[in-house]
Nucleic acid binder design. Structure first.
Lengths: 366, 366
DNA sequence: CCTACGTTTGAAAACGTTTACAAGACATCA
DNA sequence: TGATGTCTTGTAAACGTTTTCAAACGTAGG
């Protein structure tokens, strides 16, 4: 626990007269029936006005509206949803929101769904099947109209059953849960990256990535392997490291890989957290990039520019993906069609910067 | 718009017989009354079982429980909250979730509140008073039990009125909205940072930060100014840049500041986004750190390590702050006391790394 | 003046829960 | 046996909306 001081101020319970008039959170909200009484109208009429029904005299409508405003009426969405069988929540279930990919997507997504009157309920699975199940159960209880989910590697049967009862949109990863997906063509991106390295003349390429139990992890690895084999090379087992996506794991894997025998001349990293760790290791080992090692990382375009040299990076369009997910959800919720059933596949870019070059014969000796 | 392909698969509407049996999202959820009928019991009994009321025969309870399980009963939280006047949502309103500070806090917070049966509704203000108002209105409609908010610089009167009707917990920033806050002692952190530079012998110190219209922005600036004045120095107006917190603004400000006349020998940055931009500018200008310029940045500890040299960084404990907020909210919602009314003030650390040193007389000439 | 019709309103029944209250069953005690 | 109490269950009224249906009120056409 970090150092912190906790100041507990006992609050003298004067409510009303003086002081900064802080949160009067206890006051019961005004209801439709209150407005109705105060205006000598029926609750039906009030409700109609609040829902912009045309079947109410304009002058009455106006009177209601202004009065609602002055009384600070705020509709109760729970009651509304309950009665009208309408759903205003959207679930957003991801392994970790602190992952920049998901946080950017969430940002875009939250903005866009709010535009159509919906709200995002944030749920974190931590890639733990049990937490994921609990989160899904909670979302189901909240009667979300749809759930945007990046499924964990080993999803429970229970989770699948729950998902079968909701409109689901798979995001970033897929596990065959839905016909709606917003994905990124990771295979293509890593093929392109591998090709870039091969074109430079690299023979010995290593890959550090996440588990292939999630769809995009698998795609990344397969992309690399595929392109190497097409060129008659192969990705040797000793040059593959599949790990949990943490900075520390990336650091350690890079340490091992780059100080053992059988040194690669190029290294591809398939996760942003791993990339940070790898970069740190490379830096600490004093390896000259790109002279001694060509390096392609994944994820954020920002910090890669601060490394010396600037890092060649594979970059997915997270914001657009979040936007796209929000739009898809909106179309699902407005129920135009029976089911839109769309697959959106985005393109990840390979940003060529300074960390890749031809392999030199001064490649590192142990 | 990034390149993307949209594949629209029209879905043959066979529901039931074959195929992967995808989302049966249309099926109406089972209700308490269904269970009641199927078990020849009253809804009251079912409800009691589901709420672990002791007033029901154990064998009956067991029968209900297993049946609920096999039928896949999922409680309707909307109805439940409506009737029992209980609140299960917590609002989380921040300027931008892609800001690492808030995303880490959100992660911790979501995990912790879920542990007490609550859910986080994510709302983004973008520091725009109008968006903020809309978000607050939505949260009020969802009848959140509490809202964790990092208030925007110029909050609307309407927003304040809405907040007056809810339990609010100010997070990271404060605007006098509540007696509950989770903050970071930014003034102390920046005093420490300034002292560090002064102790090294710097006379000419510049500051790039965010607007002083938000509490923590103000605290940072004041901390620096205060410490300088205590030492008989002063923070000259030409050495202060207050900007929106974007990478681009940081870049541009640093470009101007570090290529104009009147060069500072040390630079303090008061925002993580600005820090990235500043770092990029410093790098592009080819300024030698720390020989020609001492640099202290703010925010993330990760990427600062990748810069050459590693950057001395002021680092706030976001995860702990999120955790703390969740706990405070839990205590508010469980209504132990009338109002806990706590102020939690966390300590931000100054991580001394390689980007600060004594000013040399080889300080840069134009 | 009567009928028919369009417009505007209100009464009341839902939505899926929780919960106050009452009632039935059974045992205990005098 | 009857009164009393403890368990266990059911009936029905909420919670704050929306929505169906019918009623009230003109207004116009014959």
């Amino acid at each position: 626990m970090s150092a912190s001081s906790v100041t507990s101020e006992s609050l003298s319970g004067n409510a009303g007269s003086n002081g900064p008039m802080h949160s009067d959170a206890s006051a019961a909200p005004v209801r439709i029936v209150d407005l109705a009484n105060e205006l000598d109208l029926s609750i039906a009429t009030i409700s109609r006005v609040l829902n912009d029904s045309p079947a109410v005299r304009p002058e009455v409508a106006e009177r209601v509206r202004t009065h609602a405003l002055t009384r600070g009426y705020v509709a109760n969405r729970l009651a509304r949803s309950l009665r009208s069988r309408t759903r205003s929540f959207v679930g957003f279930l991801v392994p970790a929101i602190e992952n920049l990919a998901y946080s950017i997507a969430a940002d875009a997504c939250a903005q866009y769904v709010s535009r159509s009157g919906h709200q995002l309920i944030l749920a974190i699975s931590g890639d733990d099947p049990e937490l994921e199940f609990n989160a899904l159960r909670s979302l189901a209880e909240a009667r979300v109209g749809a759930v945007i989910v990046a499924p964990s590697p080993s999803m429970t049967a229970g989770s699948r059953k729950l998902l079968a009862g909701m409109s689901v949109l798979e995001f970033n990863r897929t596990a065959g849960l839905s016909k709606n997906m917003v994905l990124c063509d990771e295979r293509a991106a890593f093929i392109e990256a591998a090709r870039h390295l091969l074109d430079l003349g690299h023979e010995s390429i290593a890959y550090i990535g996440t588990t292939d139990a999630v769809s995009n992890g698998r795609e990344r690895l397969e992309g690399v392997r595929e392109e190497l084999e097409r060129r008659g090379k192969q990705l040797r087992q000793t040059h593959i490291r599949l790990l949990p996506p943490t900075e520390g794991d990336g650091y350690q894997a890079a340490q091992e890989l780059l100080s053992g025998p059988d040194l690669p001349t190029a290294l591809l990293v398939g996760s942003s957290s791993l990339s940070m760790g790898v970069a740190r290791a490379v830096r600490e080992l004093g390896i000259k990039v790109p002279e001694e090692l060509s390096l392609i990382v994944y994820g954020d375009s920002q910090w890669g520019q601060l490394f010396s040299p600037q890092l060649t990076t594979i970059m997915a369009p997270y914001r657009e993906m979040g936007e796209s997910a929000a739009n898809l959800v909106a179309s699902i919720l407005s129920k135009d069609e029976k089911e839109p059933a769309q697959v959106v596949r985005m393109h990840a870019e390979l940003l060529l910067r300074g960390s890749t070059a031809q392999p030199t014969n001064m490649s590192r000796r142990t």
